[in-house]
Computed example of a mutant assay.
Amino acid sequence: MMNTKKSNFLIPGVVALAAIVIPFVLIRVGLIDAYTSQILTMGGINAVIAISVNMVTGIVGQLTLGQCAFEAIGAYSVIIFTQDVGLPLPVAMLVAPFLAAIFGFVIGFPTLKLEGDYLAIVTLAFGEIVRVVLVNLKAVTGGPNGKSFKYSFMRDDLFWGPAMSYLVSIGMLVILIVLLQNFLHSTYGRAIKAIREDEIAANSNGISVFKYKMIGFVIASFIGGLGGALYAPIVGFIKPDIASFNNSVNMLIYVVLGGMGSISGTVIAAFVLTAIQEALRFLGNYRLLFYPVVLIIVMLFRPQGLMGMKELSFVNGFFSLKSRFSKKAKNEVVDTKKNEGEAE
């Protein structure tokens, strides 16, 4: 029998590898067309940004209404570092999230010391400040018309582009989930969860509330920047509206639908809603009514979201299926022996 440590590593590893490799191969051989691969790729990017929102709202327990400002910082940074500074694209994609994390530290340091929903107000204002700056800084950002990559391998290469876009997007999503789950099960992650449940109790037990809130918020800012760093080279064009309040609310809807505090729930919701939005594109602007309708239904019938605070466990699912099949096989053997005994 597989021991617990080995199964906890092997089963999720096989699932993660399959999620990356199988669709990549199917895209390369043409069984998944470029349009479908783009939907899957955008689902992965949306999932990364939604995890950023969930980190603040669901795990740290603070409301944020401007998380997409960090996505905008990451996206514009990648284009500027690549085209204006001359950094290689992989290096720019690694540097951009750290720049977003620095902004997160600057915003969080004075705000997280306060109580109540001050963070929501500050992040909302910060998102609007970033958007207005991007609109007016025309020489660097292209202004309201946006900024584009002159050449993006993942966008412009018709032969490898769709497959590479999927590989980078989903590969980074898988790495992010693995690292984040390990962090949340560490002493730091448990301290952050304790603060979310009860700040006073956590503080009375020696947990520095401000310190761990800051850690959670800076990590969320980094993840938001990573989402932007993925978005820019894959889509190839960005506008200041990426930092808008509406975009941040859309990401918050993914979190609410999937379950606040549930990483797997957020990922599932991001992929499902991205696919449904594309399926409803024939409705034009009327498809924008879909999100509020879904949100109302979820709030009425399942306010905790799809997964609540639970996580999807492939290990438990594997052993559950294994025990079910073992039980079925055992029953079949017993029935066979019984029938043979009756025949004699």
Rank of each mutant, 00 (worst) to 15 (best):
A101Q: 11
A101V: 08
A101P: 12
I102A: 15
I102V: 15
I102H: 06
F103N: 04
F103E: 05
F103R: 04
G104V: 09
G104Q: 11
G104I: 07
F105N: 04
F105I: 07
F105H: 06
F105S: 06
F105K: 05
V106M: 13
V106D: 12
V106L: 15
V106N: 10
V106G: 09
I107V: 15
I107S: 07
I107Y: 06
G108S: 13
G108F: 00
G108E: 05
G108W: 02
F109V: 15
F109I: 14
F109R: 11
F109H: 09
P110S: 09
P110T: 04
P110I: 04
T111A: 13
T111V: 10
T111E: 08
L112W: 04
L112N: 09
L112M: 07
L112C: 11
K113R: 15
K113Y: 01
K113L: 03
L114H: 06
L114A: 06
L114M: 12
E115P: 00
E115D: 00
E115G: 00
G116P: 04
G116Y: 00
G116F: 00
G116S: 04
D117E: 03
D117H: 01
D117Q: 03
Y118R: 01
Y118V: 12
Y118I: 10
Y118F: 08
Y118D: 03
Y118A: 13
Y118N: 11
L119C: 04
L119V: 04
L119A: 02
L119Q: 00
A120C: 10
A120K: 03
A120N: 10
A120S: 14
I121F: 00
I121L: 04
I121N: 02
I121A: 03
V122Q: 06
V122W: 05
V122N: 10
V122R: 09
V122D: 08
V122M: 13
T123N: 05
T123I: 06
T123M: 08
L124T: 01
L124C: 10
L124Q: 06
L124N: 09
A125D: 05
F126A: 10
G127K: 09
G127F: 03
G127S: 12
G127Q: 13
G127Y: 08
E128P: 12
E128M: 14
E128Y: 09
I129Q: 06
I129P: 10
I129G: 11
I129Y: 05
V130D: 14
V130H: 14
V130I: 15
R131P: 13
R131V: 13
V132A: 13
V132S: 06
V132N: 12
V132E: 13
V132C: 08
